[in-house]
Write a protein that binds this DNA or RNA. Structure first.
Lengths: 330, 330
DNA sequence: ACCTTCCGGGTAATGGATTACCCAGCTTCT
DNA sequence: AGAAGCTGGGTAATCCATTACCCGGAAGGT
């Protein structure tokens, strides 16, 4: 594996000149630049990243720690981050914390060890892990969920309001016993969606009862069990607010198994406008979150913070959009 | 940011001992290990990754370059790779090449520069980019698609056979004018699925015509246009083989817009058992590929090659499974 | 013509962890 | 008791790119 000195020898210059020529930081005679380029090319020289990062004390890399690679919401965020990062020459590495605080912690340790320029993460809940980042002065931005008690840059969706509007829509449509299947307690989006659901019931002077609420992990399997459970009750719900698209899959399955067609019998609104949402029968009413935009905004915030870590933390809240389709029409 | 010497000072030992104590490579007095651990803990010491990797000439990291983060097939592979890698203490960084040879190239350069231990990739087609890996002696494994003319470890699905079986199933069901919407020419899986489709037609002594075949990028939008186009022909197809789940979305949309319910009028089989496939109406017949397993197998192959780069290349071909549902029943 | 300034480019220090090499001290064997 | 062997741990070399510092020569000023 050729090193910078090999290039220097071949070009007949010093290593300093090679470095300067290749990085273009300082002015170097165009002839020399050409010679260096040629030598590097011929040797197939690739700079040694660790050596460079060691010296520079920072790598042009952003770590993106998301809680579920299989969730289209998070992969859309990833696209947004990537697009912005690439524009300015940063690379993005994607880490999957799997909604697991240990894994998240592990990836944060790795990010610190590798001296990445910054971290974007959807925190699993515990605030402890990011304290390390704060202590080291590593720039970071939280997405989708805030960090309890932490002053940090954060990009959120007004998910409580969105849940409220979605529930209000179900009320408008005449559904009476509206239930809610949301994520685990402690996960902020799950709590907020539940809170928004309750806000709407309260505003409509409806009693809310825990009998119609289920909490489970943000996955199809959990939601499937929860929906089964709700539907098997003596007084089953006639509508459901479902907190993400993976859960919607589980709920739709359960309805299918009960021979219930969404819409008339059981109204349905789910979070996240999955690509297939309009294809099921009837088409699924959804709360579309601006995932890609979350990614771009977060990346820009992070870059700003990398440039200046003293700037005051910014909280950006983006709106969600209710897309009314057949599954919530009586 | 504390360094190893800070830890050494605090524990009253040399840096060599700290390194040995923390990495457990050589025997160190248990008392000293405890003292070192304590000192490291108190200082919040995190080893400097670049320095370590520089010295070790390799990072315990696997780069996984996939062609589409938003495709569940690839994210499932990612899970498989991750699970195996984590067991043995490797980290996985996910890179999204977006079916774009330039991006793939760029990520390969980065992987080389960062001296990752190995690379798993779904090649976009051009063989040139991986030559660099071969030249450097960086271990790598191709997944989903082979590398033309390259002897390398590779994990594939027998997608040609699967396409043939899927098409044969459509023939069995009595469909007459079976069409095919597949990926771009040059992408091996796309070519293979088309070849399998033709194999089946030939075996059934049907004439195959290019009028019923469309090629487009592996995305919903392209497939949507392709399906529109096919359906608007004077003699439209009465069945379609669709080469992945994103494309299936586009095709289902087009059918919806034409007011055609899949199944009776137009039989449908798509590759990839997406979570929603059973939820559309009628449920979608699919070719389920063992994506997670591809990931685990690829990771194990890569680890074996990292350990011994002289071992002969292995090609693993996994089978796919046709799941018959309503969309292919007359 | 001489002095100052500027600029391109070389020399060598630097970043931090790992590890080859060496040494001190203890065990064990003759 | 002396030699040989072993073991735990310290010293310093090493990995490689970047960059502070310095120097020689050219340009410009008086």
């Amino acid at each position: 594996m050729p090193t910078i000195s090999d290039v220097a020898d071949r070009a007949g210059v010093s290593t300093a000149t090679v470095s300067r020529a290749l990085n273009g930081k300082s002015t170097v005679d165009p002839d020399l630049v050409a010679r260096v380029r040629k030598a590097a090319e011929e040797l197939g020289y690739q700079p040694n990243g660790p050596a460079r990062n060691l010296r520079r004390q920072e790598a042009a890399v952003i770590a993106l720690i998301i809680s579920d690679v299989e969730n289209p919401f998070f992969t859309a965020i990833a696209r947004g981050v990537e697009d912005v990062a690439h524009e300015v020459g940063y690379s993005v590495v994607l880490c999957n914390s799997d909604e697991n605080a240990d894994k998240e912690n592990r990836y944060i340790d790795i990010a610190i060890q590798e001296r990445v320029a910054g971290v974007i993460l959807s925190p699993t809940g515990t605030t402890t892990s990011v304290e390390k980042l704060t202590k080291r002065g590593t720039a970071f931005v939280a997405v989708d969920r805030p960090l309890p008690g932490q002053e940090s840059d954060v990009v959120l969706v007004d998910t409580r309001l969105a849940a409220r509007q979605a529930t209000a829509h179900l009320i408008d449509q005449g559904y009476q016993r509206i239930g809610c299947i949301t994520g685990p307690s402690g996960v902020r989006t799950a709590d907020d969606r539940l809170a928004g659901y309750r806000d709407a019931l309260k505003a409509a002077r409806r009693r809310s009862t825990t009998k119609l609420v289920r909490r489970t992990e943000y996955k199809a399997a959990g939601a499937h069990r929860a929906a089964q459970d709700l539907l098997d009750q003596p007084e089953p719900p006639d509508a459901l607010l479902v907190a993400n698209s993976a859960m919607a899959v589980g709920v739709l399955q359960a309805l299918q198994e009960h021979g219930i067609r969404p819409g008339k019998a059981v109204g349905l609104v789910a979070f996240d406008d999955a690509p297939w949402a309009a294809l099921v029968d009837p088409p699924l009413t959804v709360v579309a979150q601006p995932a890609y935009e979350i990614g771009t905004v977060a990346a820009r915030l992070l870059l700003a913070r990398i440039a200046d870590n003293t700037r005051p933390p910014t909280a950006t809240t983006l709106g969600a959009r209710l897309i009314k389709r057949g599954s919530s029409q009586r």
